[in-house]
Amino acid sequence: MQQARDVIRIQLIILLGLALGGCITSRVEDAREGMTGINEGESVVIMAKSYHLGNETEEDYINCIENALSRGSKGLRVIPHRQFVDSLFPWFEPRTAPAETKNLPKLMQRPGVAEQIAQQGVRYIIWLDGDTERVAGGGSLSCAAGPGGGGCFGFAWWQNDADYNASVWDLEGLESAGTVSTDVSGTSFLPALVIPVPLIARTQSRACKNLAGQLQSFIVNEAA
């Protein structure tokens, strides 16, 4: 009985120690190139830069940014990226999408492109690139089970880095409005004294929250 209490006490001490320690560090910044602002009826589209260029932005992350930007009383009107790409086929496919704002004037002159964009009220295209990667890890954890019960013992940890960059293109002036970037590093722990207690750092979620919050301020231009 006393032994079980000791085990629980040790686990609580470890948990408390880890909870108090910082598991996530994050940074978010923007670089403005032009004035922004959005009117009623105007919308934004979140796109991933092409995987033909080696970009690996996750579909989940794009969906997360779309949801976060459209949420709340100050939420922006967001056109789902697949709907946008389908409506402008084949000009926003991974192979054909414009890589720079200087390609926009030619694109807008193609039959039906400007009309489709106007019809959906798209004012800004936000191009995401970057991804979440496991950059380090260590420790060891072993579990065993027998007739009298089972349990795990050990300690494992891993570190994920989420680096994302968003380029904001203003389709009104056909120019770049600037960039917003976030860099989040999170370390997760898995201590186990009989029962494993996962302490997960939600690195990608934090990167999504950071970037979406900053993008919203950037586009609405609250400082102006």
Binding site: E58, E59, D60, F89, P90, E93, P94, R95, T96
Partner: peptide
């Protein structure tokens, strides 16, 4: 990616995207 899809669904989607990529190239 396989993050939000099962393995077979991810492979199907990759195949469809490749065919769509061919279509885009042919149109252009």
């Amino acid at each position: 990616e396989t993050e939000s899809l099962s393995n077979s669904e991810a492979l199907k989607r990759a195949a469809i995207l490749a065919m769509r990529d061919a279509a885009a190239l042919i149109i252009m």
